[in-house]
Amino acid sequence: MRDEDTIQRNLEAKQAAFFLGCEKRGLTLAALGEVLDVSSSTLSAYRPTRARPKPSLMPLALFVRIARCDAVPTELANLLIEDSGHQLAPIDAVQTDWLSLGERAAGFAAKVCKFQATGGHIDHREDAELREDILIIVSEGAGAAGVG
């Protein structure tokens, strides 16, 4: 497990990359503050400069605003959580294909029964296949439920 100083340095670097990426897309601190409904002076506390090489770490509440903001590209928001091993995924509960989701779930259940029937034990290959299937089903289900 990495120590706290290493995690902080990595987060500072990610925040710097985030703000640089925003600026390259025309999102200055003022423009970013406007779309996030946060003052540019507040945002500047999280951006490293020569005068302030160690910025404050961005709070979760601000990250949530960034993640929900259509003006900020997802790849930039993902920079801020890159070290977690997770990424943001868009969800759209309006266009849920319930029939397809049900068919996938039924297919998954049938596959589990088939694998169990061939000896009562699910081997590592079958386990990997089931895990891949359930990740797809769960991610589609989360989108349908409006969470994610």
Results as ranks from 00 to 15, higher is better:
residue 91 I to W: 02
residue 104 R to A: 11
residue 50 R to S: 13
residue 107 G to R: 09
residue 49 T to E: 03
residue 55 P to C: 04
residue 91 I to R: 05
residue 125 R to N: 08
residue 107 G to N: 15
residue 108 F to N: 03
residue 119 G to Y: 07
residue 64 V to T: 10
residue 80 L to W: 00
residue 81 I to L: 14
residue 81 I to M: 07
residue 73 P to S: 13
residue 96 T to Y: 01
residue 108 F to K: 05
residue 85 G to S: 08
residue 123 D to Y: 00
residue 55 P to S: 02
residue 73 P to F: 03
residue 100 S to T: 12
residue 115 F to Q: 06
residue 87 Q to M: 12
residue 49 T to S: 12
residue 64 V to K: 13
residue 128 A to R: 12
residue 134 I to K: 00
residue 64 V to S: 09
residue 131 R to W: 00
residue 125 R to E: 07
residue 122 I to A: 00
residue 127 D to E: 14
residue 94 V to M: 12
residue 66 I to R: 02
residue 112 V to G: 01
residue 118 T to L: 05
residue 92 D to L: 04
residue 120 G to L: 11
residue 132 E to R: 10
residue 94 V to A: 10
residue 81 I to K: 04
residue 130 L to S: 02
residue 114 K to I: 04
residue 103 E to I: 09
residue 110 A to K: 12
residue 86 H to F: 15
residue 117 A to S: 14
residue 53 P to S: 07
residue 84 S to W: 12
residue 93 A to M: 08
residue 131 R to D: 01
residue 98 W to P: 02
residue 97 D to N: 14
residue 55 P to M: 03
residue 71 A to Y: 02
residue 116 Q to G: 05
residue 104 R to Y: 09
residue 105 A to F: 13
residue 49 T to W: 05
residue 126 E to A: 13
residue 92 D to H: 04
residue 61 A to V: 15
residue 106 A to K: 07
residue 71 A to Q: 03
residue 118 T to F: 02
residue 58 M to T: 09
residue 108 F to P: 01
residue 132 E to W: 03
residue 86 H to A: 15
residue 104 R to G: 04
residue 78 N to P: 03
residue 121 H to G: 03
residue 114 K to C: 06
residue 59 P to Q: 11
residue 106 A to P: 02
residue 84 S to Y: 12
residue 86 H to S: 15
residue 50 R to C: 13
residue 70 D to M: 04
residue 88 L to G: 02
residue 108 F to D: 03
residue 114 K to Q: 10
residue 128 A to I: 06
